[in-house]
Design a protein around this nucleic acid. Structure first.
Length: 572
DNA sequence: GCCGTTTTCGGCCCGACTGTTTTCAGTCG
């Protein structure tokens, strides 16, 4: 069982937390966190990189020492230094640091003074009123800890982007009513269109004297006001979502927007570039000495460090700064580039609308084509069509196409990939289709090698065209099944197959990193909604967001092609 | 512990808010 990047990253983060509690050199602590971020976000597994003989010190923030530690973890699953540290500092202390308001210093104090090691210890200590006796803690701290421990669930919950939108939109409408408000924008990972967001960062500018903060904390969805200041306030909404509101002068709007959009790694890298040029960059602007020389727009900030504007979706320090320096940034795909949708269901399997209704909805979005991809015969529980049923459906589509104007329905099927890699219909039936969308829907728990081989074998079939939702994950609900994505993409490349970026907001499968890997390997992508209703068709925008995070351009995406060119791609 | 068209040693992003303090440490983003 190969070690996942996330496991390596978690170990580095835990080690960093414990070292911080032990009062280690803060820069050493940061080095471990930085390495964790690099490893967690890396599109290829450390294990595969080592197999290929890649020198890990080439990766950002990985030096000789950490490269060795990663190698040790890949080979043995162990990080000896972590074991060593955990032997003298209780491992659960790093959990305590996740409680809001508790950092390394206070966790250390709680441990030294009251021998608190676990959440349970902390809860008891708070209830028995021992905490306020420690130097640096008072009655308020004790009370807050008591409340926070009560609410603490242990896991940091990130909210799916589309759910965050549902929370953000009414709040934004409410905030816009504030007296004296000028600009308002949601920054942070929401603006970078990350698939999940941890909190909402809202940036505003306003007329002098306007009481925006009062208005904000008075929102009727506010559950708790964490802090409230002149330029910054933090609240929790009833939904559990944390919202930060920041107020900056208009002259600083661009610098603040850049700062609060992040990512942190991108910001730090840009700041470092500023320092090299003798500037200081913060949320108020770019400064040369005391003089503000830029900051009204984001572009002005990039300008000062000698870079072109970088789209928010790219700001992850995953090579965008290097690309920008060389003027090689991708021209990111937009929703307008999309000409059709290659994955949709109707009432014939598990969809909610008829062929005609789906066709008209797709035409209404300005599409040239919509592919009808009912489930195949093995997927009985999702209304999969048997051979006869599919043939009849094909005829229905032919007939409807004669009546339709401006849009063409493509005859396809979401064909199951069986456990042995065979497709769920015989070839003589598959050849009646314009193309196929093939997918794994059962036997999610095969070992990595077998699962990978299953999909690769399926691609050997000349009627295999697009691999749908390649990992099967459901965000926050179901883990991806174990595969070697790189090997699958290589097989797709070799067999002239394509890979889907499923735009369902709970799937978004490929990931952004998967898109980057596909692009690097020369595999083109279908961004498709897997629509089960007419309204689902509008989830295309979610897929496009994810594609943009994955550096994709219109030329990388097959459903940006006109119909005649698209169909040529499916002849293998 | 990482990193280097000034450096292989000496830097490492920085400002706001809170609470516990009498001038600032701790935490957060």
């Amino acid at each position: 069982m190969p070690v996942h990047n996330s496991e390596i990253a978690d170990k580095f983060d835990r080690l960093a937390d414990l070292l911080e509690i032990e009062n280690a050199n803060p820069f050493r602590v940061r080095a471990y966190h930085n390495a964790a971020r690099t490893v967690r976000g890396y599109p290829r597994s450390m294990s595969d990189l080592l197999d290929d003989g890649v020198d890990l010190t080439e990766l950002p923030d990985i030096g000789d020492d950490l490269a060795k530690k990663i190698q040790s973890m890949v080979e043995t699953g162990k990080l000896p230094l972590l074991d060593e540290v955990e032997a003298r500092t209780p491992p659960a202390l790093s959990e305590l640091m996740k409680v809001e308001g508790l950092g390394p210093k206070r966790v250390r104090a709680l441990h030294l003074e009251l021998h608190i090691e676990t959440l349970d210890d902390l809860k008891k200590a708070a209830e028995s009123g021992k905490i306020h006796e420690i130097a640096g803690f008072g009655d308020k701290s004790e009370e807050k800890i008591k409340q926070r421990v009560e609410k603490f669930s242990g896991e940091e919950k990130r909210t799916k982007l589309i759910e965050a939108e549902d929370i953000a939109k009414p709040l934004l409408e409410y905030l816009k009513k504030a007296e004296g408000l000028k600009d308002i924008v949601i920054a942070g990972s929401y603006r970078r269109r990350k698939e999940t967001v941890g909190d909402l960062d809202i940036l505003v500018t306003a007329k002098k004297g306007a009481d925006i903060m009062e208005h904000f904390t008075g929102y009727d969805e506010v559950d708790e006001v964490v802090s409230k200041g002149v330029t910054r306030s933090t609240v929790y909404l009833r939904s559990g979502m944390q919202v930060d509101l920041r107020l900056v002068p208009q002259a600083s709007y661009g610098a603040a927007l850049h700062y609060f959009t992040g990512s942190k790694a991108h910001n730090i890298a840009v700041r470092k570039m500023g320092v090299k040029k003798g500037y200081k960059i913060n949320e108020y602007g770019v400064f040369k000495g005391d003089e503000r020389i830029a900051g009204k727009t984001e572009k002005s900030v990039y300008d000062k460090v000698g870079l072109p504007y970088i789209e928010p979706e790219l700001r992850e320090n995953r090579g965008e700064l290097e690309a920008a320096k060389k003027h090689k940034l991708p021209k990111l795909i937009t929703l307008d580039d999309i000409r059709g949708n290659l994955h949709a269901h109707t009432k014939a399997s598990d969809g909610h609308h008829t062929l005609k209704e789906m066709a008209e909805a797709a035409a209404g979005l300005g599409y040239e084509y919509l592919a009808i991809t009912e489930h195949s015969q093995s997927l009985a529980f999702a209304g999969g069509l048997d051979k006869k049923g599919l043939l009849a459906h094909i005829k229905k589509i032919d007939k409807l196409n004669e009546q339709l104007d401006g849009i063409v329905l493509l005859k396809s099927s979401e064909v199951d990939i069986l456990e042995d890699g065979a497709l769920d219909y015989p070839d003589e039936l598959l050849k009646e289709l314009d193309f196929t969308v093939c997918a794994v829907h059962q036997k999610f728990d095969l070992p990595r090698k077998k699962q990978t081989e299953r999909i690769r074998r399926a691609m050997d079939n000349p009627y295999f065209n697009i691999l749908a939702h390649p990992s099967g994950r459901l965000i926050n609900e179901r883990d991806p099944y174990e595969t070697d994505l790189e090997k699958i993409l290589e097989a797709a490349k070799d067999n002239d197959c394509f890979v889907e970026l499923n735009a369902q907001p709970q799937r978004l499968d490929l990931t952004d990193e998967g898109c980057m890997m596909a692009k690097a390997l020369g595999v083109k992508i279908s961004i498709a909604t897997d629509a089960h209703s007419t309204s689902d068709l509008e989830h295309m925008r979610c897929g496009v967001d994810q594609a943009r995070r994955g550096w994709l351009e219109a030329k990388d995406v097959i459903n940006c092609l006109p119909l005649n060119k698209l169909l040529r791609l499916f002849k293998r």
